[in-house]
């Protein structure tokens, strides 16, 4: 049977996840948390926000793993979160992003089926222009990639899956020799 085609696939660096849940003042949570993290120059690599079925809202953010400790301290500081909001965190996660050629709904369903069969967890999903991003354990990403490569057809000349360039934002301009 012909394999479903993908345009490509890309994995993230090692990340950490924070899930914030609460009912009161949901309109304040995303501006407040994003402002706090930006003030500390902490990048948010992934974000989802939604209302859950029990009237609570949930904000999920993924940050670089190296920012886990100071982000935990910031978010756990009394008064940071609106009253009644609770936080759970998870270290060592990653994002695998697939680029559907067509039929994103089918590809989403296929990955859910394939990963469930291999006990690869899915902690979150978000689609964007021509992409579907899956959050899973960082140590499971290689297995997740292998499963997808075996089940889908990638172009022969697809871009590297693992990040080759790592971008950091800095306020400092360092001048080297000859500059």
């Amino acid at each position: 049977m012909e394999k479903v085609k993908l345009g490509g696939m890309k994995q993230s660096l090692e990340l950490c996840q924070f899930d914030l849940r609460g009912q009161d003042s949901p309109e304040r949570i995303v501006p407040r948390v994003s402002k706090l993290l930006a003030s500390q120059k902490i990048n948010i690599a992934f974000l989802t926000y939604n209302k859950l079925n029990n009237e609570s809202h949930q904000l999920t953010i993924l940050l670089n793993q190296c920012d886990f400790t100071r982000s935990s301290e910031l978010l756990n500081t009394k008064g940071t979160l609106p009253r009644g909001w609770a936080m759970q965190s998870r270290k060592h996660v990653g994002i695998l992003t697939v680029y559907p050629h067509r039929n994103p709904l089918k590809i989403l369903g296929c990955v859910m089926v394939l990963w469930a069969a291999q006990s690869i967890p899915i902690y979150g999903i978000a689609t964007s222009l021509s992409a579907i991003s899956f959050i899973t354990d960082y140590q499971a990403i290689d297995k997740g990639i292998e499963v997808i490569q075996n089940s889908f057809q990638l172009p022969d000349d697809h871009a590297p899956i693992k990040p080759e360039l790592i971008y950091y934002q800095s306020d400092e301009v360092k001048r080297g020799k000859g500059n």
Partner: peptide, 18 residues
């Protein structure tokens, strides 16, 4: 989601939270 009945659907956005 992979069933035949779903294949004509065009989702503009999907998210999932655990």
């Amino acid at each position: 989601l992979t069933s035949h009945d779903m294949q004509g659907l065009r989702a503009s956005f999907i998210l999932a939270q655990g």
